[in-house]
């Protein structure tokens, strides 16, 4: 139990995937212009990340390892992630057409969200078990969602700020993300492993 809590704290705060590991920056920049879309994206990514972390663990453990074809890991994981994303997109289209319309191009783009592949590969690298992998994926998604939603609210405020012309748009967003990363460095040392 303590271990799971530590994994959660580590992935959400200390080793936040966006602000500390700098994974998944494209959706972080792309979908954070409005709070509503950010929340939808956060939900979809959470679902996909957790599911793909579990699936990729199963594939690795029961297909790649027994057959001795670990060198196909990256490609296999990309395939798994693409399948999960496709499944999510179909589900979202049926369940909530509005959310599907709002997310638009970004839903299929979760496939190329490097945080998703990063979680799958890091799980293997850190030799996490089944439950650990699931918690790791969920924690990573939670950290991503947290930061994305906070950033979206922040950017809505930046939209009305009198930013100097050369810094408008993406540049001030990136500077803000950098300053957020600076703030998140304060969490360093909360977990023993760092």
């Amino acid at each position: 139990m303590t271990e799971m809590a530590l994994i959660l704290v580590s992935t959400v705060l200390v080793n936040n995937f966006v602000l500390v590991k700098f994974l998944g920056l494209c959706p972080f920049m792309g979908v954070s212009r409005k709070l509503e879309t950010a929340m939808g994206m956060a939900l979809a990514t959470t679902f996909v990340l957790t599911l793909s972390a579990v699936c990729s663990y199963l594939i690795n453990q029961y297909l790649l390892a027994p057959l001795g074809i670990e060198y196909l890991r990256t490609i296999a994981f990309i395939l798994v992630i693409a399948a999960v994303v496709q499944f999510t997109e179909m589900a979202v289209r049926k369940i909530s057409p509005l959310l599907h319309q709002v997310l638009g191009i970004f839903l299929p783009l979760i496939t190329t969200n490097c945080a998703v592949l990063g979680v799958a590969l890091l799980n293997v690298q850190e030799q996490n078990g089944f439950l650990q992998s699931a918690v790791y994926g969920f924690g990573a998604a939670l950290g991503f969602s947290l930061v994305l939603i906070l950033f979206a609210a922040l950017r809505e405020r930046l939209a009305v700020a009198d930013v100097p012309r050369p810094f408008q748009g993406a540049s001030i967003a990136l500077i803000t993300a950098g300053l957020m990363a600076l703030a998140f460095m304060g969490f360093a040392g909360l977990t023993p492993a760092g």
């Binding site: 709070l35 939603i149 906070l150 950033f151 609210a153 922040l154 809505e156 405020r157 300053l179 957020m180 600076l182 703030a183 998140f184 460095m185 304060g186 969490f187 360093a188 040392g189 909360l190």
Partner: peptide
């Protein structure tokens, strides 16, 4: 939290910045 378990001696700057991030929300 940062004082008791974090790696920096005093967490005021980080605590304020983290809540600044959360303020718009």
């Amino acid at each position: 939290v940062i004082r008791a378990w974090g790696g920096y001696p005093d967490g005021i700057a980080f605590a304020v910045l983290l809540m600044n991030i959360a303020a718009p929300l």
